[in-house]
Simulated scan of single mutants.
Amino acid sequence: MDGDQLVEILEDAGLSPYQADAFVTLLGLGSASATDIAQASDVPDPRIYDVLRGLEEKGYIETYEQDSLHARAHDPADVLADLRSRANRFETAADEIEDRWSRPDIEEHKVSIVKRLDTVLTRADELIRSATNQVQIGLTPAQFDDLSDALRTAHESGVDVKVCLFPMTTSKPDIPSAEVLASTCTEARYRTLPSPFVALVDRSWTCFSPHGDSTNEYGVIVNDRTHTYVFHWYFLTCLWEIHDVIYSARDTDPPITYVDLRQCLQDVEPLLGDGAKIEATVHGFETDTGREITRRGTITDVTYAGHATNDVQETPLFHLAGKASLTLETDDGTYTVGGWGAMLEDYEATRITIESID
């Protein structure tokens, strides 16, 4: 290691540039007068006395009088101990930074910004194939063709797949046949206006990219329940609720399965108003422990933040945008059941199956 490198390291250890330069010079001289140290280093003559006194206070040198002020390097044991201690602290800090960076609670929330739509579609293909509960996807017919095999794989695995198709431009595209839709999704709707590509998988993953006429081409891939919940409402309000059904495999007679509590609530409320007895099975999680549960019982009530609408058969979606839940009476107690992101209820439902309606 040359002298310049040693000076830089001593500066990192807390010495000023002049102090580091003077100390390295004094190590080479052994002992010398203040004037000689100044001449052999880059320290200006008027500053040398203050620089030497500072080094003495830090324990690097000792000064003495011999016709004029002289200095010699102090026993390096203390200096070496300090430098090694600093090195250990840097090593410990490096380990701590690495540990914090790699902790699971940080890694569980990943956000990737990518430059190409192809990257978004490739990741969406992978996530859809591994889905276990639900897929909500808005895409053009061309993108549907690219992802149809993945959608078919998910659909055949029992995943609830909702597809909203829309054109690349304002002209109406060729819609997949009913046979193709039957093999790839649970329900499909059509929106007449171009829209961004979006895919939501198992309430955790979001894949998003602006539509083709956007100024910039980019994509966002996020693994986060809160972020995905926001896009879930975008999907419901902009891509789903008000658009025409072009295919549906949903049963009108029990058993009827829902992956969205609010859709279930819309269908169940009029039946309860007519005095029907509704038997249901709820699959989901306890909100306080996260433990997976399956409960069968009777739906006895529905509650939501909006106003009841006695003059229409189905409660509008915007009335269900706040707190919404149903009450399930079982052999071992009565429980409240919430939907995606439930906190106040006993359970967060991932699937609700209406077993019978009497």
Results as ranks from 00 to 15, higher is better:
H319W: 09
A249W: 02
R84Q: 08
A199V: 00
F90C: 10
L151F: 04
P167V: 05
I37G: 02
A94Y: 14
P173Q: 02
P104A: 06
L127M: 11
Q266K: 13
I48D: 01
V268C: 12
L52P: 05
G341K: 06
A249D: 13
R203T: 06
D118E: 11
T327A: 04
R129Q: 10
K162Q: 12
L193H: 15
V120H: 07
H243P: 08
A93Q: 13
S31K: 14
P194A: 04
Y347R: 00
T257L: 04
S171D: 14
E91A: 15
F208N: 02
M1L: 09
V114T: 04
V222G: 04
A324H: 02
G54F: 05
I48P: 01
E156D: 13
P141N: 07
L6F: 13
W233A: 08
I37V: 07
A131Y: 06
V259A: 09
V337Y: 01
R72N: 03
R72K: 14
E314A: 12
E62L: 10
V201R: 01
L265I: 15
S33T: 10
K58V: 04
I357R: 01
A34M: 06
I9H: 11
D244N: 12
F197Y: 11
Q263H: 15
C164E: 08
I352R: 05
V312F: 07
V259D: 06
A324L: 01
P44V: 03
A87S: 15
L193K: 15
E355K: 04
T353F: 08
Q136G: 12
T215Q: 13
D260W: 01
N88W: 08
G333K: 05
Q263K: 14
R86Q: 15
T315E: 10
E156L: 13
V180R: 15
E65Y: 14
P254L: 06
Q134H: 14
D45A: 11
T206P: 07
L165P: 10
G30H: 00
H243K: 09
D36W: 06
T186D: 05
L121V: 06
K277S: 15
S356I: 02
D244V: 08
R291E: 12
Q66L: 14
G284P: 00
E348I: 08
E314F: 15
D99Q: 14
D251W: 04
D332R: 10
R152N: 11
S157T: 06
T350W: 05
G273F: 11
D253P: 04
S112F: 07
H283M: 07
L27D: 03
G284Y: 03
N216V: 13
R116P: 00
I278R: 02
S148M: 11
E11H: 07
H70L: 00
Y247L: 04
E187M: 10
T35Y: 09
L317D: 06
I221G: 01
H211K: 12
H70E: 06
E62K: 12
L80Y: 13
K172A: 10
R250Q: 10
A13Y: 11
T92A: 15
L29P: 02
L80V: 14
F166A: 08
H243G: 03
Y64S: 05
F235P: 03
K277W: 10
P176H: 05
L320I: 04
